[in-house]
Structures are given as structure tokens and as C-alpha cells.
Nucleic acid binder design. Structure first.
Length: 417
DNA sequence: AACTGACCTTT
DNA sequence: AAGGTCAGT
């Protein structure tokens, strides 16, 4: 029910936010595996759900353009904390093409027609609020240009790719959405993850409306994720062994004061947040680092995956000594310290740029600048990196290994009532 | 404390 | 093999 609330098409009602392309590149930032909620619905146009609303974003050289799709008859309340949804029905097109992309809840489409929310508040304030939502989501208060400068000066390998991959920012995502999306990424393909997150929202998230035949859903709430039968449902949706991780993690968080527990970690030190996350089923060191970096304001967190490990070996000669067969926790800690020493307190941001540049889908971008650049100096700076391992603790709460606070290990708690 | 395989599916 | 995690040694 309410599956087919009609979302208004993008008219000429773009809003603009001053933002240079060197500060933000939508294509790189939205498709590099941080969030799996955005699709390029048209050339240079990215549509997705953020903060309980459906957005379409695009950009010019100097501005970020955005539009929020309003439901024409939506009764689906946004699950967000703010309930004030200034939905103003403009066109009341008879709901036509119910082209069921979901095939799940096929309903006879009823005429969208109920109490049209009488405008109870002036809508003008909403636009400022939405601009602020974007600034927060993209963390536009952080000057990426300055950071690129610093990283490039400190690291010739970063400098080598910087010009080809500008505007790669770390998103500030909702912690719940980030956590449960990232759990899905473990031992998985990016191409597959997109579909999984999509089906997750389709199956358990509140419907927000339909646009161009595609239905959009909010990210599932913790209660929806923790519900009985969720594991089996997700198994059917192709989540494999991750299905119980999602359900059990949700239940565990709910038992620990719900979303406030997660959001509270934003104010906690990196090491503490990392440790707390690792207590959740399906959350190891790498996933915890991703969540810390992309939703909990831990800019120093460096997720070490196979790509970063390859980079470390190839570019920074980080095999000196021993090369574990797999990426161990110790290796992740050591590499975290190493990259924080190299890149500084926002090492996680720099890592995101390097990771992005490593993705196969973005290799064409690399070629372009490579031709311009020189291509002779290759192995130049492969020096000892072991030296850097020493004074790496100089950055406050850098490494996420200290902290012997409280055990709080539930992890394998089966059906702990 | 640090390593080694098994593990759901899909490219 | 894929942007790992878990349990056992």
C-alpha cells in the first residue's frame, strides 16, 4: 500500500549551492563504494535517497544543483527524526504507469487522493534546511583543496593521481544506514552489493514514492532489520551468510538503546567507537573502520581492504619483513598507523581518494592524465617504510587498539534474551 | 596473540 | 576471486 505515491518530475526548479568541482565530484564520490544509494539516472544526474527524501543532484563547474522530489499524495511518513514534510502537491497526474519494478507488493493502484496536507507552515524554510542537509552530507565545510595540497606535498604517489581524481569526498552518512550497508560489503563484489542494498530497502524500508517507474524507499529502521523472519527473508534475497549478521546486529543495537547508541559513538574517541562496533556480529576491523570513517566523524580511520593492501605493497613497499597470507587485524592496525603518519589526521579521506583511483571502473580517468603526465619515473620512492612505524603514535588517539575499557563482548551471544 | 580455512553468491 | 568475518588452533 502506498507503494506508488507519485514523485513529481524534475521541472525547472533546481536549487543551487556554491561548490566548485574541485571540491566535489558527484560521479566519483557517489559511485566509489561509500554509499550504495545513488544511481546515475541521467547524464550527470544522480538520484537517490538521503535523510528520508528523494533527491536528484547534478553540478556545474561552480555549483551543486539539487532537487527534492515531493510526493504528490504520499502518506509514507519519512522515518527520520523530523516529521515535518512540507509536501505540496503540484501536479496531480493520475497515477499512470504502475510499472512495478519491485514485483513484491503489487497493489491495485488507488487514486492518490486523501487529505492533502494543508500547508501548515511556510515552505520557504525548507529549502534552507535542505541546503544544510547537503552541506552536512557532503561535509562541505571541509576544504578538500587544501587537503589535496597537503597530501600531495607529503606523498608523491598521492600527487601522481590527485589531478585525475579531484573532488573525492568522504560522505557523512547516517550511522545505521552506513553500518548495515557496509556489513553487506564483506567478501563481496561492488556490483553485487548495489543490488543487495537495493533489495534490502525495497523489502524492509518505508516507501517514499515512485519516480520514472522506479520506487524509492527509505533505509530500513533498526526495528525492521531486527524483526523476526528477517534472516530468512534476506537469505531469499541473496544475502547469503550475511543475513544473520544484519538481523543480529540490529537486535543487539536495539537492546543497547537503539539508534542513540550508534549516534553516541560520534562523540566517542576513534578507538572506543571502533571497539564498540567490533562487538557486533558481522563487524570486524575493516567494516568498523568504514563505519567510523563514513558515518561517525572519525576522519583518521583507515579501512584496510585488499585494494589498500595492494597499494601499500606496490607503492609504499610495505612487504618489508613479512607478508601475511591474509589481511590480519595486526596488519590493519599497522597500516592504519603508517598511513596516519604519512597523511595526517584525515588519513581516511586520503585513503578514499587512493581507493577510488584504484577502482577498475575509474581507470579510464587515470589514462587521460597519465598521457599528459610523464610516464618514466616509476619505482622511485620505494624506500624503507619501517622507519615510519615508530613515532606514529604522535597523533593523539590514533591507533584503534588501545582502550581496555569494558569487555562488552556479545558477538556470539546466541539468542540472548 | 597471530594464522588458517570455511563461508553464501555472483561476476 | 570479490572492499572479510568467524571460530578453532
Amino acid at each position: 500500500m502506498a507503494e506508488h505515491a507519485l514523485l513529481l518530475p524534475v521541472g525547472n526548479m533546481w536549487r543551487y549551492l556554491a561548490c566548485a568541482k574541485s571540491e566535489l565530484r558527484l560521479d566519483l564520490t557517489l559511485a566509489c563504494g561509500q554509499s550504495f544509494r545513488w544511481r546515475e539516472t541521467a547524464e550527470g544526474h544522480w538520484t537517490g535517497v538521503m535523510g528520508g527524501r528523494v533527491w536528484t543532484l547534478s553540478q556545474t563547474d561552480e555549483a551543486l544543483r539539487y532537487h527534492v522530489h515531493r510526493s504528490s499524495g504520499g502518506r509514507g511518513e519519512p522515518a527520520g527524526p523530523r516529521e515535518r514534510r512540507a509536501g505540496v502537491p503540484l501536479h496531480t497526474e493520475g497515477s499512470s504507469g504502475g510499472s512495478s519494478a519491485g514485483a513484491v507488493n503489487e497493489e491495485e493502484e488507488e487514486e492518490e487522493e486523501e487529505e492533502d496536507d494543508e500547508e501548515e507552515e511556510p515552505v520557504t524554510e525548507d529549502t534552507d534546511e535542505e541546503a544544510e542537509m547537503l552541506r552536512d552530507y557532503f561535509q562541505l565545510n571541509v576544504s578538500l583543496g587544501d587537503l589535496y595540497q597537503q597530501w600531495g606535498a607529503a606523498d608523491p604517489h598521492f600527487q601522481r593521481i590527485a589531478a585525475s581524481f579531484p573532488g573525492v569526498r568522504v560522505l557523512r552518512q547516517d550511522p545505521t544506514e552506513c553500518l548495515f550497508s557496509i556489513i553487506c560489503t564483506a567478501n563481496n563484489h561492488i556490483s553485487r552489493i548495489h543490488g543487495m542494498v537495493d533489495r534490502l530497502c525495497q523489502a524492509l524500508g518505508a516507501p517514499l514514492g515512485t519516480l520514472d517507474g522506479t520506487s524509492y524507499h527509505d533505509f530500513p529502521s533498526l526495528s525492521a532489520l531486527a524483526g523476526g523472519g528477517v534472516e530468512a527473508r534476506l537469505r531469499d534475497l541473496g544475502f547469503g551468510y550475511r543475513a544473520p549478521f544484519l538481523q543480529r546486529s540490529a537486535a543487539q543495537i536495539l537492546a543497547a538503546d537503539g539508534p542513540r547508541w550508534l549516534e553516541g559513538l560520534r562523540a566517542a574517541p576513534y578507538a572506543e567507537a571502533h571497539e564498540a562496533l567490533c562487538a557486533l556480529p558481522g563487524v570486524g576491523a575493516k567494516v568498523a573502520n568504514c563505519v567510523c570513517l563514513m558515518s561517525l566523524d572519525k576522519a583518521e580511520a583507515v579501512p584496510v581492504d585488499t585494494h589498500v593492501w595492494q597499494i601499500a605493497k606496490r607503492d609504499y613497499g610495505y612487504t618489508a619483513g613479512k607478508a601475511p597470507k591474509s589481511i590480519t587485524n595486526k596488519l590493519q592496525r599497522d597500516l592504519g598507523v603508517f598511513f596516519r603518519t604519512l597523511w595526517g589526521p584525515r588519513a581516511g579521506w586520503a585513503q578514499s581518494v587512493r581507493f577510488c583511483a584504484e577502482l577498475k571502473k575509474f581507470q579510464p580517468l587515470r589514462e587521460t592524465a597519465q598521457l599528459k603526465k610523464e610516464d618514466e619515473d616509476e619505482d622511485e620512492d620505494k624506500k624503507e617504510v619501517t622507519v615510519a612505524r615508530e613515532g606514529a603514535k604522535a597523533e593523539g588517539s590514533g591507533n584503534a587498539k588501545g582502550g581496555r575499557n569494558k569487555p562488552a563482548r556479545h558477538k556470539k551471544a546466541k539468542t540472548s534474551a
